[in-house]
């Protein structure tokens, strides 16, 4: 487990968001170092997905700042953040189900290949879109399913496809919202291996319920409860933290830790 290198990729300061009186994010402070895999855990309703939504630009925070790679992105729309190298995967599978698996990834490649006001040439025969897409599919282990409709893939394969698409823009940081959700033990193990292989090249913010995966992968862990940071530290510290055990792990998950 590497110590923080004080080279922040993502700095979140005093972020706040409420929905009709419910506090989803409360004065949240979070720093993610470059090259770190930083996990965010917390009980249901702790505001983890809301946090990801604000980081990716899907939701606007009420107050606070988000600085990514030295640039304040608090006001930037989703597509601009993506263009800066901040990629996101979705908790609920969000794909182009009526397009082929390869089309899905090729679209993600195209998103980072300049503007798309190109009206004439057949995009499905452009090697500069199709070849990187095929390589990405091979990287996540979906090479053989490239030409099938995305709707025919299993849930686990959808997660792999999500990952391939997130990687298409050669991002410097990934926001992963519960990539293990709904996966069987075998698929989970494969996903953990894949993330372990990625974490050397990429900064990753991982929101996950699967404690086994979190403690196997994370360099540092932040614990959220009711939108507030209760603790941040290396996995051993989090495991030992009494406040965390009481607030979260103690209730249901302590047995697994």
């Amino acid at each position: 487990m590497s110590e923080p290198k004080n080279n922040p990729m993502l700095q979140v300061s005093h972020l706040a968001k409420r929905f009709e009186g419910i506090v989803a994010t409360d004065d949240l402070v979070l720093n993610v170092e470059a090259g770190e895999l930083h996990a965010v855990i917390g009980p249901n309703g702790a505001g983890k997905t809301t946090l990801i939504a604000q980081l990716s630009g899907q939701l606007a925070p009420d107050s606070g700042h988000i600085v990514f790679a030295g640039q304040d992105i608090t006001q930037l729309p989703m597509y601009r953040r993506s263009a800066l190298g901040l990629a996101r995967s979705f908790q609920i599978t969000s794909l182009f189900l009526d397009l082929s698996v390869l089309d899905n990834v090729a679209l993600a490649v195209q998103a980072h290949a300049g503007h798309s006001f190109r009206f004439w040439r057949d995009a499905r025969s452009e090697p500069q879109l199709r070849e990187p897409a095929r390589a990405l599919l091979a990287r996540v282990g979906l090479g053989a399913r490239a030409d099938q409709p995305a709707s025919l893939l299993s849930h686990g394969e959808h997660r792999q496809l999500e990952l391939a698409m997130a990687l298409a823009g050669q991002p410097c940081m990934l926001l992963l919202d519960e990539p293990m959700a709904g996966l069987g033990p075998e698929e989970s193990a494969r996903m953990v291996e894949m993330l372990r292989a990625l974490k050397r090249d990429l900064t990753i913010l991982l929101v996950e319920h699967d404690m086994e995966a979190v403690f196997a992968l994370a360099d540092r862990i932040t614990v959220l409860v009711y939108g507030r940071v209760v603790a941040t530290g290396v996995p051993e510290d989090i495991r030992a933290n009494a406040q965390v055990r009481e607030a979260y792990l103690g209730e249901q998950e302590a047995g697994h830790v």
Partner: peptide
């Protein structure tokens, strides 16, 4: 197919 996802992967 999925407008939100299109914006998330970087298309205005």
């Amino acid at each position: 197919s999925n407008d939100m996802r299109m914006r998330a992967i970087g298309f205005p």
